[in-house]
Write a protein that binds this DNA or RNA. Structure first.
Lengths: 127, 127
DNA sequence: GCAGCTATATACGTCATGCATATAGTCTGA
DNA sequence: TCAGACTATATGCATGACGTATATAGCTGC
């Protein structure tokens, strides 16, 4: 028995759906930053504070480094706990361009679906 | 070693990102249909023929039935192999409404990201 | 009979996620 | 000074979604 069954709606899926990875790349395209900072800045794109897990963000940043989209180094001479600072690479910039093109397509798809949904509703009203 | 590493770009993620599930629900909101038919009609939303796997579609349809978003029955008196025909439920219709609202938010997020990306590029040109 | 198409389904391995937990430094207040 | 809250990063574990391959079954054309 799944407890959500009665309340409502939907199996969660991936709430961020990897869109947030592009957001990270976007933020890093403006300036270097560390994980915690990036997490906070995701709110700009409309993400709720706890919508994307911190561990997910850290894990994805390390993977992006594996894939040579970013490089990282420990920030020196700073107060507080150590910060791993990330910097976007040329490869990362190309990746970002690629993703923005993908997002344009995705936007088109969403618009098509929303338009069709509106059509369905206006038809129903016409009955 | 991952072979794609040199060619280019990106870890795949979920190419459809569960958006296609909403598309299925949308199509079923217009009329009953079987899986294979739905797969073909996904092209309307811009999906390439093999972008979403048939097995993924069938699996998701069964899950949607589990979640009471659709019901299914075997179509009788038809030529060819048996067809499992799906019909949307009231719960499925509510679900669809919920998802269209989510998609509006998602669209906003994408637009925000694209706008910011354009800003970055125009700034670079101004240097 | 056999290849190719329609149509549905499942086993298997992989990958991404959320939750819980671990760590370590800093700062505030009792 | 000692506990608790906050910053900051990281990993183990269970779950869930996916693609590939494979299985099935009926129909069509050669």
């Amino acid at each position: 028995m799944k407890p959500e069954r009665n309340q409502c709606l939907v199996r969660k899926g991936n709430p961020g759906e990897r869109f947030f990875v592009v957001c990270l790349l976007m933020l890093l395209n403006e300036k270097t930053a560390h994980g915690y900072e990036l997490a906070e800045n995701l709110s700009y794109f409309g993400f709720e504070t706890d919508e994307i897990n911190l561990s997910t963000i850290y894990r994805n940043l390390r993977k992006m480094e594996e894939d040579c989209l970013v490089t990282s180094f420990w920030q020196e001479g700073e107060q507080g706990p150590q910060k791993r600072v990330y910097e976007i690479t040329d490869r990362g910039k190309k990746e970002l361009e690629f993703w923005t093109e993908m997002l344009k397509k995705r936007k088109t798809r969403i618009e098509k679906l929303l338009a069709r949904f509106d059509q369905q509703n206006t038809k129903h009203k016409g009955d």
